[in-house]
Design a protein around this nucleic acid. Sequence first.
DNA 1: AAATCCATTTGACCTCGATCAAGACCGGAA
DNA 2: TTCCGGTCTTGATCGAGGTCAAATGGATTT
Lengths: 237, 237
Amino acid sequence: MTDTVKQAGELRRAALFAQADDSQLAILGHIMHEVTLAPGDTLFTHGQAADRFFFVRSGQIKLFRLSPEGHEKIIEIIGPGQTFAEAVMFMGVPGRYPVNAQAMAESRLYAFEQKQFLKVLAESSEISLGMLAAMSRRLHMLVNQIDGLTLQNATYRLALYLLEHAPRSGSEPTEMELTTPKGVIAAQLAIQPETFSRILTKLKRLGLIEVNGNHIALRDLRGLRNLAYVPMSEDSA
Amino acid sequence: MTDTVKQAGELRRAALFAQADDSQLAILGHIMHEVTLAPGDTLFTHGQAADRFFFVRSGQIKLFRLSPEGHEKIIEIIGPGQTFAEAVMFMGVPGRYPVNAQAMAESRLYAFEQKQFLKVLAESSEISLGMLAAMSRRLHMLVNQIDGLTLQNATYRLALYLLEHAPRSGSEPTEMELTTPKGVIAAQLAIQPETFSRILTKLKRLGLIEVNGNHIALRDLRGLRNLAYVPMSEDSA
DNA sequence: AAATCCATTTGACCTCGATCAAGACCGGAA
DNA sequence: TTCCGGTCTTGATCGAGGTCAAATGGATTT
């Protein structure tokens, strides 16, 4: 437990804690607990009483909802340096997790208890502001998701996904690897794996991309952007 | 401008300011500006530089997104006593509004400038916490929307809408009035007016509801709940 | 090499909700 | 009263994407 204090510095990777000073980090180091998850482990489920939130040190956590028939919609995939479920700190005592959380790979987390963390918050307006910023970003992201889901079609969402996940390199045609299995990406975009596959084929046929397994070459960025119709004022949340 | 100070008490209606003490309210009263909108007036548009947020004193504000073809998805309708666009305070200097805002009726608002408000925030952990709570509630609401949009069908969303907007009265069959035009409700549920109408007819045919213009009688709550499948752990955000 | 497992692709079909078009209804103005 | 502008309903058709089923392919094991 004492060495967790040393590790507190890595919390700075999270936007939430970026502005915290050393003494605040030290306090955080004292109150956080380590959590380790094997691939497939469930961290919490939708509706479960929520009294802590998490920082991801390594691995990947999938946040998702399930339909009564068992279909899964991935709301977000959380990677190293990110925090999640912070919002639940303020939903009541205790609140309820609005989603399920499951490890997609071996993952190491830090957990923060609601009660202890709220005390730290009251003391630190830096961390409060960081938390407001983090939640505001997530809010914006969700609004964009709703937009894509209601006002645009599956092809739009896939094109946007490709553009947003392509490595930044001027604006020339780009190569990229799909890091997550295609089925998982499909669940994020709220489409079936079959449809995902079909759309990739269509884009290939249109000459916009080339596909080789998980390797995708974006051949016509202009065409893709046209499909995704990203207004210039839009930031990629 | 001096009488706005007197009016600051009405801010307490907003969850955001509920915990603020009198001196804080007085400060808020000094920095806020009055804004009046006629029906149809646009307050701000998607992508526009954002340096203030709003409290609704009276009227109704529609927050929505537009597709390239001009279709509109209503994210939320804000009524008296509610605040909106607070999140944008933390998206940068200045951030961008993620949605359009338009008055649906003659509306009176108070506006708070980002720069001034952030100063108040830094001083008041009560208001910071109120703001975190407000954003956390909105976050939860959006996640529920995404769930309904991706994992459930239009009938589900409409049934849920009826149940959530019905006056609370034990669990007996209930009467209700649709306060907003049906087309507006449809845009909230992300369905076309025609489909909205057809689903109402279907529910009527199933004996779940009775419809007379804007007056709706819920005849079979159990049946509706069954359609909407509300898990018991779910709070109606 | 053969067998097994799983992710992905392809094909055939179907369903929900959108679209297009026409009426119905309802309130306000002349 | 008639006319006119909305909102709402109803009907007919269409299409994107879901579903079900089977084939393909790659990786790993035996």
